[in-house]
Design a binder for these strands. Structure first.
Lengths: 171, 171, 171, 171
DNA sequence: TTTT
DNA sequence: TTTT
């Protein structure tokens, strides 16, 4: 068919991931990620900021990675798609919630800050009442291989950088 | 500050744009765009498809463009950002609706198909009760003429559209 | 007009920004950002990785920000557009280089890691031979405006999370 | 691993797809897509426009789809990643060309306009002298792979397309 | 080379 | 609920 439904979020987790398990055993991770936007109020001249919270759901392998490596405060890059889900509230009324079904997950915290800030989530985090994640053999490898951040310089012979400007260049 | 909140949608309008006007006279266009995703069911082997509907809001110049050129069935590329808006339903309960605040609008219908299929939206479309769009020089006359590729309309019960503006809203 | 030309890069700088100045005094920053892709070789089963280097150019205010805050190893989110530039090599031959004209720049290093790793670029960095950056009044503001901390949390009443799965859900 | 390397292009093909075949029989499609940007010249007040051309490569199933459905003038949505490829010119000098490795392909021409405008490319199109696309399983090893870039001269000197595949290429 |  |  046709259509593009794509979301890209970069922001920080407001809480530890909420882990669950599908009937077939697949992991599910729900995370809440904040992005903020700031601007200057036209009238008062004050600086203002709004925070937007995004519900993001990951499945299977990515859910496991989320559960193991993400914590409250973690910074992430997420690529996914919008999905509005119908549910029924306690009054029997139809309600709708829009979530992001995560397709790509990248952790953006540097090794260092992760090492510093990292600590396994408290057991409580995984023992919540209903259907919580309790991955049997929960040692998913040691750590994500972290390449030395850009040691080498670009191999491509440098062309002259942009520096001869006429007045009509469109940027 | 920090954060990326970006949405990219390519799809077709399920209805003519819903046009409104802000107190200061700026145009507001609400459009509903469908994207669909198809896959093969693992169990039955059947081909299945789900359609997702996206509420998108444009302001000012882009709203005017939307109102003038987009019609039910139009194909668009939209870039925007997610925003969850709070409102109160008829029972006095808090409700939330996630919308896309449109930043970029590209019409994807070819000149030809536009020329062929195009006709101004019926007047009725712009004469709804509350606070409707009444752009100075537009005579959106006569005949409905856009084949609905997008069969069904959005199933989600329409929350009140954006129309009570204070001066500090960040868009 | 028609078309979308968009690039999104998240990666690390391979060098300190290369700073220059336009005739009108506007700053120009050239940065080189690495992204890497890894996969498992089908034949050998070995883990392999390739690094791709991206040349990115920023102008004006964003160039100043890049020059002030980015260093070799910095992690960034960049949004921009592709532009292929023609130049002449030392043999008089036409050459072409594809660059990303940066539109959005987000620094992804945490405060902490920045504090640790940060040091003003060596003077040498700004005194290269040809047409280098030497911004007369090089104190571009003190610090990025510090917005008021996020107020209260928008407490959207939690709808039931995804946990009743039938076998046909399309994700 | 780390990094995001993403390109999104919406534009029109400047020529019919250039079809090739990998040694293992997989299809390869090279397309050239234009995007344009327009702005008003600050000095003259004139309306100006620049066109940017993007080389995009698709493999396997998507290449077949491209070969079957895309034609000169077709409008497409493409998602992919940047890759700079090294090659050697006739003087033995190293040269570099940046291409987009296509991951997602969406045709944006309406059914109608496709129906109208569509016609199988002239036979000539598929029977060009050297190594042209001529069905799924054709003469694999017909080595000659330096295609005279067809009729009109692309302004950028055509580098050799991707055609010498070892088994480890990461796409 | 395309499109608007 | 996060971050800067």
């Amino acid at each position: 068919m046709a259509g593009v439904n794509k979301v890209i979020i970069v922001g920080n987790l407001g809480n530890n991931p909420d882990m669950r398990t599908m009937p077939n055993g697949d992991a599910v991770a729900n995370i809440s990620v904040a992005t903020s936007e700031s601007w200057t109020d036209r009238n008062t001249g004050e600086r203002r900021e709004v925070t937007e919270w995004h519900r993001i759901v990951f499945f299977r392998r990515q859910a496991e990675v989320a559960g193991e490596y993400l914590r409250k405060g973690s910074k992430v890059y997420v690529e996914g798609r919008l999905k509005t889900r119908k549910w029924t509230d306690q009054n029997g009324q139809d309600r709708y919630t829009t979530e992001i079904m995560g397709d790509v997950l990248q952790m953006l915290d540097s090794r260092g800050s992760q090492a510093e800030g990292y600590a396994p989530a408290p057991q409580a985090n995984y023992s919540a009442p209903q259907n919580n994640y309790s991955a049997p053999q929960n040692n998913y490898g040691s750590a994500p291989s972290r390449p030395a951040p850009a040691q080498a310089a670009p191999s491509q012979p440098a062309p002259p950088p942009v520096d001869n400007f006429d007045d009509d260049i469109p940027f």
